[in-house]
């Protein structure tokens, strides 16, 4: 195998698909059956969520019955309450906007940070490389139940900075550096503290350089070194090679990491609940969870409706990146 791989040439693969017509028909039927079963398996539970979303009683559907309603329009009670009538109590659109800002920002930064690290792990050989790789894997598996407490106290401290720092600079008052002693010039720090979307993004970035780096490194490894070599000979810097050459080549894995990070942050609840206090600042998941947070009488109807609505952005993001993920086999590599 290695002998065939030593001098890779990247060409399109249609030529290898040499099969007889019968073999092809059987293969396709088999595939369709597999896909059929998979779709039923995947979507059957979702059906219940859909039924619950349209059920005005607010309970999770327990049977496959159509929700009992007096009028057809009652079917949309949950959606109507969420999206239109109860906006003064639950600012649903605001939550969606917040979720988008948090998820998109942290996704982009995550992709960037892990791509940089993965490039270094893949292309440079240095002492402690494998130990570091192992290390970032290990720290991520620490069952960190106290992280919540530690992170909360940290965010609280960051919020306190805008009060502490001006005190430190109090002696500068009146001088040309007086602005440093003005609490106003440090207010921006609060956008990374408690009850802020910035703080939440910061916390999410803690997971940026974890498993993603591994996934990307595996992919980077499969890009032949010859490409870098020839560029180096042409006088390109490492940065230029990374940014101009490799980055476009690894689109599939960037898209995969992007989808993973987006879904992960969009659906994250525990940390968001810890950091965000005001209803206006909530992300969608925090908002939805308070419908099922009551001790007994939980409003599963609204939760289900919201969960369906919140599923849409994820599917859209996936759809828009799908071409990157499964697009023509290493089509980009030909340019190299």
């Amino acid at each position: 195998m290695s002998s065939t791989a030593k001098a890779p040439k990247h060409v399109h693969h249609e030529s290898r698909m040499v099969q007889s017509g019968r073999e092809r028909a059987v293969g396709l039927t088999l595939r369709l059956i597999v896909v059929g079963i998979a779709i039923v398996f995947a979507l059957f539970p979702v059906l219940f969520i859909v039924l619950s979303a349209f059920n005005p009683a607010g309970q999770l559907s327990s049977g496959l019955s159509i929700p009992r309603v007096n009028e057809f329009s009652d079917l949309f009670n949950n959606f109507e309450a969420l999206l239109v009538t109860e906006l003064d109590i639950w600012p649903f659109w605001r939550w969606i906007a917040n979720s988008f800002i948090v998820a998109t920002t942290s996704t982009i930064l995550t992709v960037l940070i892990s791509a940089l690290s993965a490039y270094a792990f893949s292309r440079f050989r240095f002492r402690g490389r494998r130990q570091m790789l192992l290390g970032i894997l290990l720290v991520q598996v620490f069952p960190n139940l106290l992280a919540l407490v530690a992170l909360f106290l940290m965010m609280d401290q960051i919020s306190a900075l805008s009060r502490i720092i001006p005190q430190i600079f109090a002696f500068l008052q009146g001088s040309f550096l007086g602005f440093l002693a003005d609490p106003g010039s440090w207010q921006w720090l609060n956008t990374f503290g408690l009850n802020s979307l910035g703080g939440l993004i910061l916390i999410y970035l803690g997971g940026a350089m974890g498993v993603n780096t591994w996934l990307m490194k595996g992919f980077f490894d499969s890009i032949p070194r010859d490409i870098d070599e020839s560029a180096h000979v042409d006088g390109a810097t490492d940065w230029q090679i990374f940014w101009l050459l490799i980055f476009p080549l690894v689109r599939p894995v960037l898209a995969v990491v992007g989808v993973l990070a987006f879904v992960g942050t969009f659906n994250e609840f525990v940390l968001a609940r810890l950091i965000l206090r005001d209803t206006q600042n909530w992300t969608l998941m925090v908002g939805l969870f308070q419908f099922i947070n009551a001790d007994f009488n939980r409003d599963w109807g609204k939760f289900a409706a919201g969960a369906l609505v919140s599923g849409i952005p994820v599917v859209i993001v996936y759809l828009s990146l799908q071409r990157q993920i499964v697009g023509g086999l290493t089509a980009g590599a030909v340019k190299g």
Partner: peptide
């Protein structure tokens, strides 16, 4: 990236 950063900066205002 730039668009998102701008949007984020606009809406990050913390209420305390």
């Amino acid at each position: 990236f730039v668009l998102v950063l701008v949007a984020a900066a606009i809406s990050l205002g913390a209420v305390a």
